[in-house]
Design a protein around this nucleic acid. Structure first.
Lengths: 254, 254
DNA sequence: TCTTATTTGTTCGTATGTATT
DNA sequence: GAATACATACGAACAAATAAG
């Protein structure tokens, strides 16, 4: 386990620690030795250990906390099935928000969702997709989703007021089948969906609400639901800590 | 432009530089001032500038090079349309590998693809998907794709030898419509596709072949093509520098 | 070709701050 | 309050790659 020169020491230490965690020397939930101890073990300065740990932290592998020590993370990777979740039978089988909860229970995690509904000025990108003026008021259905009390997903669904105001869509509980079933009843059934996934640094609010580190990354998904008449009736902006999700897509050759 | 306490200095400097680049003070392709100059401008030590630049580098925004200085990157975000690219009309309209080249030309970039075909032992994950024994020989069709001579994508398509050996699939040029048209002619037409996307640190070979930095991230895509008889006849492993791509997916409510 | 200056990458040693125990 | 642990910053030094002469 000696330190060679060709690669930077902090990268070699990061690799050794990553291997030690994978080998089970430091199982999920356990504490790593303190930085001074690790510095002694690898024969480097504490600053180098600190930098190596920041590499593992950015990968979501460990969670260092001031005064407490460094813990090996436990949350496994959660799979998100993209195209399956909007099918009517899927929505109705699992009650509302069934897709997310099923994904978590599949991994042995306990899901929790907190919903908040409000009217807000439309963000620029949302306004142009919904074809309203920038800053016009729209309905925002925000959700924060947790796995074992760890926040793992933020989602905000934006709907135009001329469709949603005064309907069940403005209630916290949209009822059986969820928002898409209500849209259908109102004569705006979504027919086509699109999702665009981008990968970027977390915003201030994402760092706070998802308990993320600035050098971790979020997968940002913008989903649009379009009617047969080609009107976008919903824009859903979703943020996921990228290291704890995998995204699955299915389609047929037609 | 003053430095407050609540956030770390290197994060504040990173934010200021990010804003300066967005404002056009440092346009794409231009050089940033040297680290000592920036240290003077912001009133911090060079080590702090170096760390701030490493933040921007991990986001793919700048490219510091020893001895040369720090350049603002030019490659824009490339969109990848997931479900559209396997449709027969799409494949045949653009010749083989049309999807990738169309994506790049749309952004004003010049595409280039280098293909290599060989027989290799199947990696574990590939072997289990193709239902061959671990280490069994399979056909590997590797591709490295470039935009303006910058590598932007690695892809390796694995095919079982009992299907592909001695056919056009083992040639560098698979002919009109590409590999999926050949599979169809051989009686193994793909009917269903699945892609799983994960975000992770780059491997050593990805750092080398994609000219990536260790603290950047790759989007790793594993695509499987399945026949109507439910046999997986191709596994395609794709690596993208995550910061320069966006993934788009379309589907209908059916 | 060789030398020198410039520029970024990394490490060391030290010090201080902040949160937790 | 004291001890422990991680976060950050400073100042210095050297290495490695490049550019200029």
């Amino acid at each position: 386990m000696s330190i060679n020169k060709p690669q930077a020491e902090f990268l070699q230490v990061a690799a050794l620690l990553r291997a030690a965690i994978a080998d089970g020397e430091f199982p999920p939930g356990s504490q790593l030795p303190s930085e001074p101890e690790l510095a002694n073990r690898f024969g480097v300065k504490r600053a180098t250990i600190n930098r190596a740990l920041s590499v593992l932290r950015s990968e979501g592998l460990v969670r260092p906390e001031r005064g407490r020590g460094t813990t090996v993370n436990e949350i496994p990777v959660i799979r998100r099935d993209t195209a399956g979740r909007q099918r009517r039978e899927t929505r109705e089988a699992g009650q509302a928000r069934g897709a997310f909860e099923a994904e978590l229970r599949e991994k042995g995690l306990t899901p929790k969702t907190v919903v908040s509904v409000s009217e807000v000025p439309a963000p620029d990108e949302v306004a142009s997709l919904l074809e309203v003026n920038a800053g016009d008021t729209v309905l925002a259905r925000g959700r924060v989703m947790y796995a074992n009390d760890t926040p793992v997903q933020l989602a905000t669904s934006y709907l135009p007021l001329d469709i949603a105001a005064g309907t069940a869509l403005a209630e916290e509980d949209t009822g059986p089948g969820g928002a898409y079933s209500r849209l259908a009843e109102l004569g705006h059934a979504p027919a086509e969906f699109n999702e665009v996934v981008r990968f970027r640094a977390p915003s201030e609010s994402e760092i706070r609400d998802l308990a993320m580190d600035p050098d971790q990354r979020v997968a940002s998904i913008v989903r649009t639901a379009r009617t047969a008449e080609d009107r976008i009736v919903e824009v859903n902006v979703i943020s996921l800590p990228a290291h704890q999700w995998e995204l699955s897509f299915n389609w047929s050759a037609e």
